[in-house]
Amino acid sequence: MQTRERWLWAILGALWLAAIGAGARVLWSYQSTPGEHAAERRLWPAASRLPRDPARPTLVLVAHPHCACTRASLAELAGLMRRLRGRVAARVVFVRPAGLPAGWERTDTWRTAQGIPEVTVWADPGGVEAARFGARTSGQVLLYGQDGRLLFSGGITPIRGHVGDSAGQERIVSLVTTGRADAATSKVFGCALGTAAGRGPEGKGA
């Protein structure tokens, strides 16, 4: 092979590595950027239509039915429910933004959520419930104790739309099984819900 050709391949190789590096950076940045955390609601919202279980902690997962990241959140919720085996009740709330027809939220993620034991699924027209709980990002999980106090607020996927062990899951398991955890929050990864969560009343009790 001639020197000129070697140089040509070397330049092409350098460009190839640069293109891969740039692409990986974009992917990394997207996957690792968390969504907006929920506005704090220290107590179970009084106006909520969702039933809270007085005998055990209640977990609320607020999700966007069309967001690809919801699949990962539900896969992790299924794992979490298997680990906790009846020690927690769960409600999955699918937000249907205002102006969209009824049934828009009945996607494959809805059916997946329905298939998880101990989970009840709720449609949330206009994102009213999501706003009551302060949720702004799909995948937001809130864990309330039997007394209606907020125990945990955060996400249960390690990165955006990606299944796998996460700090959020470990904290929920620890809180439910021992009553303690190293932290009561975690990052939330998912699509923006487009709710008016920030404008809701904060800290109103059940």
């Binding site: 974009v26 992917l27 997207y30 966007h64 069309h66 967001c67 690809a68 933004p97 102006g99 969209l100 994102g127 799909s138 699509c191 923006a192 819900l193 487009g194 709710t195």
Partner: peptide, 13 residues
């Protein structure tokens, strides 16, 4: 296929 923000959809990254 899509990334969502409320009811707005765009081609997913």
């Amino acid at each position: 296929p899509y990334a969502w923000e409320g009811k707005q959809q765009a081609i997913h990254l």
